[in-house]
Design a protein around this nucleic acid. Structure first.
Length: 511
RNA sequence: GGCCCGUUCGUCUAUCGGUUAGGACGUUAGAUUUUCAUUCUAGUAAGAGGGGUUCGACUCCCCUACGGGCUACCA
């Protein structure tokens, strides 16, 4: 049976969204767009104790920055299945829990935290699995062991209870994962999971299955950490009688840390100097800032590209993909099964590719932002900015490097590269510089070519070799030893500034 | 500990029984750039181990090792 594709990204607002989560969102988005389906955002905030203010807004802002746009859901406008926040759907879940209860697929449990921990201690002592399951539930306080009137009494007196799934004994549950193929589990290894909590909220398992069904989700694409609970979800679909509507499953491999073992974590980013989050996150309690890709000078297109290639490949040699190209090429069959170590070097390379091929005019806002930060935003005209963009962007890997590399386009140098000065400055230099100022000043047109001609003539007259002096000339103009063509810089600066900077160097450089 | 998933160059990966095991990042060397960054060329480097199946295995099966996930009234 073919049905229209509807996928969802369903994060919990418990803090900043990790790039692993971003990648999950991206794969969902790519899959939906490729299939001509819908991508929706649902907020899974059923755990009130872990709610973090601002996290939801953070998630939305991150996705928008990356160009991962949803058709429906939180942050992108309601669709026909609203609301999309589980806390606002609270009233729905109880009904479905009751349905399971009545059909004998679930039961009430009254065990206290102490009851549970003593059960676990007891079982651990005998080296048995410490779980609430078809065997152990017979010795616990629940509606399967307690007399009916006792259950009724407890319920009516307002005693705390949870609703647990009643797992069948010794049953093989097989499920087909779109990435991994058939995976099977035995219910003997599972436990009677809580579906409905004593605070009146559902757990992930119930809410997730109910909402996916109600929202007509066709494919569940999520992280590998959910693979172990997938059989429970399959069982739930069966118990509800929704097997025909059950979505297909695809469990994505995890993102691992660059060095050593384990899952990628915030600490790795801090230690190795790369971001683990899409945009800056300020912890609302500690005020601690976690650096984001955006603030580190990454371009959203580069982040999308590099994330897409971490765990998926097109089967060709193509490495650079626009979002549209990714949509065109994306299939779940080409998602790999094993976890991928994050490589900061490759991330840098990707960003560099995008910065270099960026249009000059698209780069202007970044330069403008840097100028604002330095109080210089009205000092330069559009044409000048465009030219500097052309020269700066091919030198850098990250937009935030632009000021460090290209500041001399906007402010006069205050320091001069000592190595170059030490190596190239001699007693003949001051006279040469004065000559250059004089000759430049009398030029009518001040272009790259004419500058070079005058420069060369002046050097010849002073008996100085061009190769020896050029780097010092560059340092006089920019303060630094590297950069674009010197004469191009001079043309851009203009005659007056060029002469002024040579004059400055003459006065400031002391040996 | 139990269950589940995984394992090709340092890293991301291609290969869907027969290849000199390919590409990219990194790295090394050279060229270009009168500088730096780029760019270009070349090099470097891999099937975890052991058993099967097969004329033939990186590819299929089993075992072991290693890595990861789950094992909450968290998602």
């Amino acid at each position: 049976m073919d049905r229209s594709v509807r996928v969802r990204f369903a994060p919990s607002p418990t803090g900043a969204l990790h790039i692993g989560g971003v990648r999950t969102a991206l794969y969902n988005y790519l899959f939906a767009k490729k299939q001509g389906g819908d991508f929706i955002i649902r907020i899974e905030d059923t755990d009130q104790t872990r709610f973090v203010p601002g996290a939801e807004e953070y998630i939305i802002e991150s996705l928008k920055w990356l160009g991962i746009e949803a058709n429906e859901g939180i942050g992108f406008g309601d669709g026909p299945y609203a609301p999309y926040r589980q806390s606002e759907r609270k009233h729905i879940y109880k009904e479905y829990a009751m349905q399971l209860l009545e059909a004998g697929h679930a039961y009430y449990a009254f065990d206290t935290a102490e009851d549970l921990s003593s059960m676990r201690d007891r079982l651990k002592a005998t080296h048995a699995d410490a779980k609430y399951d078809p065997i152990t539930r017979s010795s616990m306080k629940n509606s399967l062991t307690l007399p009916e009137d006792e259950v009724k009494r407890r319920l009516e007196s307002g005693e705390h209870y949870v609703i647990r799934y009643k797992l069948p004994l010794n049953e093989e549950v097989k499920l087909f994962d779109e990435i991994r193929g058939w995976v099977s589990f035995n219910t003997n290894q599972m436990d009677d999971k809580v579906l409905f909590k004593s605070d009146g909220m559902p757990t992930y398992h119930l809410a997730n299955v109910v909402d996916d069904y109600l929202m007509n989700i066709s494919h569940v694409i999520r992280g590998e950490e959910w693979l172990s609970s997938a059989p429970l979800h399959v069982l739930l679909y069966r118990s509800f009688g929704w097997e025909a509507e059950m979505p297909k499953f695809a469990h994505l491999p995890l993102l691992l840390k660059p060095e050593g073992n384990g899952k990628l974590s915030k600490r790795d980013g801090d230690r190795l100097g790369f971001p683990v989050f899409p945009i800056n996150w300020v912890d609302p309690i500690t005020q601690e800032v976690s650096t984001g890709y955006r603030e580190s000078g990454y371009l959203p297109q580069a982040v999308v590209n590099l994330l897409a290639m971490l765990g998926w490949n097109p089967g060709t040699d193509q490495e650079i993909f626009s979002m549209d190209e990714l949509i065109e090429a994306f299939t779940l069959e080409r998602v790999s099964k094993s976890g991928a170590k994050f490589d900061p070097n490759k991330a840098k390379w990707y960003n560099q590719q995008y910065v270099h091929k960026m249009k000059d005019e698209d780069f202007v806002p970044f330069v403008h932002k840097a100028l604002v930060e330095h109080g210089l935003d009205h000092a330069f005209d559009e044409k000048y900015l465009l030219n500097t963009c052309r020269l700066i962007k091919e030198k850098i890997s990250f937009t935030k490097e632009l000021w460090d590399y290209g500041r001399y386009f906007f402010i006069d140098p205050e320091h001069y590269d000592e190595m170059v000065v030490k190596k190239r400055w001699n007693d003949n230099i001051p006279a040469l510089l004065k000559d250059l100022i004089q000759n430049f000043s009398s030029m009518e047109t001040f272009t790259q070519l004419s500058i070079e001609t005058v420069y060369q003539e002046t050097l010849n007259k002073n008996g100085i070799a061009g190769k020896d002096f050029l780097q010092l000339f560059r340092v006089c103009l920019t303060g630094v030893s590297g950069g674009p063509q010197v004469f191009e810089i001079a043309e851009l600066l203009g005659k007056e500034k060029t002469c002024k900077r040579i004059q400055n160097a003459l006065e400031k450089i002391k040996i």
